[in-house]
Amino acid sequence: MSWIIGALLFWAAMWLLNVQLSKRPQTRALSLLVPLIFGVTLLVLWEGMVRGFQISPILLPPPSAISVRFANSLPILWVDFVQTFVKGAMSGYIIGCGSAFLMAIAVNRSPFLQRGLLPVGNFVAALPIVGMAPILVMWFGFDWQSKAAVVVVMVFFPMLVNTVEGLKASDHMQRDLMQTYGASYWQGLMKLSLPAAMPFIFNGLKICSTLALIGAIVAEFFGSPIKGMGFRISTEVGRLSLDMVWAEITVAALAGSAFYGVVALIEKRVTFWHPSQRG
């Protein structure tokens, strides 16, 4: 009982603290501190509730148990991370986004193809593409190549749609200006269309960064060698050792957030000029 009350009191206290903090003039440190306090509060609440209600660790292990398990199985987690993230997700992400980008450049010269591809691409991007995973595992085998293939298929259309949309983003006047200089098609593309498309391209890259990890993990449910995050999750669930599953989820969460963060950081560098980045 004391665990529950303690956790709730902690929650209330931290919330009051956050309300006070958020009234202060906004600084960089503050906008990091406030969500951090909130996150810690959630963890404390989780720990308190699990202990207080004596929830079975098979259903929901407390954060403390998960972190112990995490620290004890670093080598396994690392092997899984390399197999799923580095080999599967990253190679698929690079191939998929790269080919979608080249495809978008290729159709950029034909408004006819653009008008045809956009609705079809938007349609395909909304489909449950993960469902292709069993087929691709059948085609490319159990190892990381099939996972990369799933990722390629998943990221291709979102990336294509965003890039095509972005290449159309430069306004009329700026294109007229290029004309008055007698600029060639490729000069116009390199100096105007591509830079103007960057915010859209990065939007696509960000969406794809989360899709890539999902694709690689889900594909492992349909067959994999005896390593990989998806493999580990499905086998450990079968053995009901949920703390290992949560440790693996932690890795996935960290990897996913870090990946997204890196893309967002590069975006900030490249599209510093865009109103949304100027703040």
Partner: peptide, 29 residues
């Protein structure tokens, strides 16, 4: 404002976590 500052970053972070990948586990548990 307090909610904006504390919750919003986590809402965004929540989507970088490949929850879809652990969905089967949630079902089984």
């Amino acid at each position: 404002r307090a909610m904006d500052m504390s919750v919003m970053p986590w809402v965004i972070t929540s989507q970088t976590i490949p929850i879809l990948a652990v969905a089967p586990m949630i079902i089984v548990v």
